[in-house]
Write a protein that binds this DNA or RNA. Sequence first.
DNA 1: TACTCGTGGAC
DNA 2: TGTCCAAGAGT
Length: 357
Amino acid sequence: MPPLPVDLLRWYDRHRRTLPWRALPGRTADPYHVWLSEIMLQQTTVAAVIPYFHRFLDRFPTVADLARARQDDVMAAWAGLGYYARARNLHACAQAVDRAGGFPRDMAGLLALPGVGPYTAAAIAAIAFGHPVVPVDGNVERVTTRLFALTDPLPAARKAVALRAATLGEGAEARARPSDFAQALFDLGAGICTPKSPACALCPWLGACTGARLGIAATLPAKAPKGAKPVRHGAHFHLVDAAGNVLLRRRPDKGLLGGMLELPGTIWRAQAWTMADAVSHAPLASAPWTSMGRVTHVFTHFTLHVDVYAARIDRFPNVIAMGGGLVYGERELDGLALPSLMRKCLDIARRAGPAET
DNA sequence: TACTCGTGGAC
DNA sequence: TGTCCAAGAGT
């Protein structure tokens, strides 16, 4: 007995989540809301996204408003959510959509948008435009590998899993409700077919699930082992003048934390920095630098230890401003495009006393 | 194909 | 405490 769309949709009609970007039952969601939420939800939890989604709609009510915004304001609104290339692509995409007079309604047009890949194009097509496609995200991969007991490890088996997932939406009932069917798969993965301890007893597809019948559902999807996470070291400097202004700088648009602001600092390298070595790279090596402690921050592919140094001077010499330095007042910091790592550095620089060593 | 690219919460 | 992970995309 294959998994029947009608069984999932019946379950969804009773148990669907209410989420800010979702339309009421029977209604079609705003493509702007669908697109914005899908970009935010890439590799990001629903709980983390909700306050950002509200803030964005408040600040940028329409895609035209977002298109016309300054990139700095978009980055600042995104600050803390991570994967900052998403914010840069979001802004570029809004401008493309605004120029075109609206979102493309077909897969090819959606795929051509910056920041929109195979998953997001399918999600928008299904949810906003009612196209009968199955967006394959982590939820759908998990549900699919369990339903059909696909034991080949990800990511190598990703293609085969996607082909199987597409068959889930082939029935007439799914093709009649593509938006609900896609979101039903998400809700099933998020609430029932969870990564650990799935609630199989409550699953509308239990009778069709080969993984459950074999007792291996909770072990799927299999994943290739990941390599060890290297450690890097850096130092960043909190330089404040008598008026309480702080020296910052902008990171280049590409690469890690691209386009975001930071305290001036050293490169991040495998070898730890001594204080003397680090301070020789400070924006003003002659300032009375004091060690304020260490921040540890875990990125996706490495762990970073940052030694934070602080110094207070009378006023910034002009040479600092000439090096691309940006000066902000203490009370401006909250609204800036500062990533979480730099919030941590600022916190200990301003709060802690000199580190005891 | 295999990396790069953030963050915070759950266990 | 360390590990995993969340509606992936770009290169």
